[in-house]
Each structure stands twice: as structure tokens, then as C-alpha cells.
Amino acid sequence: MIKAFLSALSFLTRIPAPSSQLSSKDWQKSVIFYPLVGLLIGMIIALGSVLLVEVFPLTITAFFLLVLWIWITGGLHLDGWMDLADGLGSNRSREIMLEIMKDSRVGAMGVIAAILLMIGKGMAIYELLSMNLTFLFIFSPLFARLVLICSIKAFPYKKEGGLGEGLQRYLTIPVIVLNLAFVLAITFFLLSFHGLILFILSVIVSTIFVLYVFKKLGMLTGDCYGAIIEWSECVSLFLAIAIWRLF
């Protein structure tokens, strides 16, 4: 289990972790710990916001946090977001969309999608900073990776030899339930009922996105997994702002 966690950490982040002796089995098991790694990412972002806001104005702090967010994940999920945007934005047949997504080059739709995502995330980060709600940065990566493992479990992965192949094997129902309980416990403990509202709405909106992608492609690929994380993170940031403004 320790090797599986280190595998998840080395794959999903740039945090140094010994990975030379990790096997393919450790990689497949690592998906169990994706929400835990998401929590760690969120804590780093929240801590960074506390430190940076003491030195810089909110606009500069928001920019640095966005850069930190991209850096700590190595831009891995952003790449998937752009590839999916290129595929879906082509408005072609399912087979051609999948071929476009495999192309290493980035098209116009991918660039546009990346710009819009970064603007949206940056504005949301700034608003949460201005509302003195920096602790909410913890939950966006956490929720996103819970949505991801549920998507991996619920929808088929049909791309032979792809990055996500084999991840479903260790995502049993008890593992999913344990991760769900883990996320709900942290959310309720830190945010009470407001946190539960944020969690439920985030999951609903993210699930709608996953269903749309699956309807278009008939499967989920590694690029889809990255896009799910980016979408879910951005959605939860927006919803956090709306919920705290309303309540």
C-alpha cells in the first residue's frame, strides 16, 4: 500500500517520491489513493495562499497560486483537457474525435479551452482570496479526484495500451465507499452542512460533464480523466463562491 501511495504521488504530482522500484501492480493500486493525493494538493495550495497573501496583493497572489497549481500537477490534467477539447470541438465522428485526441499537437479548440479554463480558475482563486476563504482550496482537488475514481469505476476504458489501462482492477465497491466516506468526513468536519451542499452540487455538475463526454466518445480515455479533474476543480471553485455568497 505504501508503494501504491508513492506511485499515486509520483504520477499525479511533482512531489519527490521514490519511484524506481515501483511495479505495474503498484501503479494499478495507486488509484485507490487518488483522493488522498488530491487532499495533499489542496493543502499545499491553501498553505501557499496563506504565505503569499502576506507578501503580495491579491491579484499577484492569485497568479502565483494558479502557477503553483499547474506546476504541482505537471500540467498533466491540463493536457488532457486540451486534447479532449480538440476532439469534441472538431464535431466529427467518434472515431475521428479519438484520433484527434491522440495527436500530440494542440489545435485551436484546445488552446481556447485552456485559456478559458485558466481565466476561470484564476478569477475563482482571486474571489476566494478576497472573501478570505483560502481554506476552501483544500476541497477542489479532493472532490475532483473522488469524481475521477468513480468515473474510472463506472465507465469502460477501451483504449488498449493506454495510460488508464488496469486502473479499474483495484477499484472495488468497498474501496469507492471508503474513499467516499473519507471525503465526506473531512468535508463535514471542516465545513459542516455548507460543505455537504458544496460536495453534492460539485458531484452533480461533474457527473453531467462525464456523462456528456461518455455519450460523445462511448468510452473514457486518459485524456478524459485529466479533463474530468480540470472540470471538477473549476466547478467546485465556482460553486464554493456561490454558496458562501448566498449563505
Rank of each mutant, 00 (worst) to 15 (best):
I72A: 01
T73P: 04
L78K: 04
M82I: 04
D83K: 02
D83W: 00
L84D: 05
L84K: 04
A85E: 01
A85K: 00
L88R: 10
N91S: 11
R92L: 11
R94G: 13
I96Y: 14
M97T: 08
L98P: 06
K102H: 06
R105L: 05
R105D: 03
V106F: 06
G107M: 01
A108E: 05
A114S: 12
I115W: 09
L116S: 11
L116I: 13
L116D: 09
L116Q: 12
L117K: 12
L117H: 15
M118F: 15
I119M: 10
G120Y: 14
K121I: 15
M123N: 13
M123F: 11
M123C: 13
A124S: 15
A124I: 10
A124D: 08
Y126V: 09
L128H: 04
L128M: 10
L129W: 12
S130A: 13
S130F: 14
L133K: 09
L136C: 01
L136N: 00
L136Q: 01
I138H: 03
F139P: 00
F139Q: 00
A144W: 00
L146S: 05
V147K: 08
I149Y: 04
C150T: 13
C150L: 15
S151R: 02
K153S: 10
K153Q: 14
A154L: 15
Y157T: 03
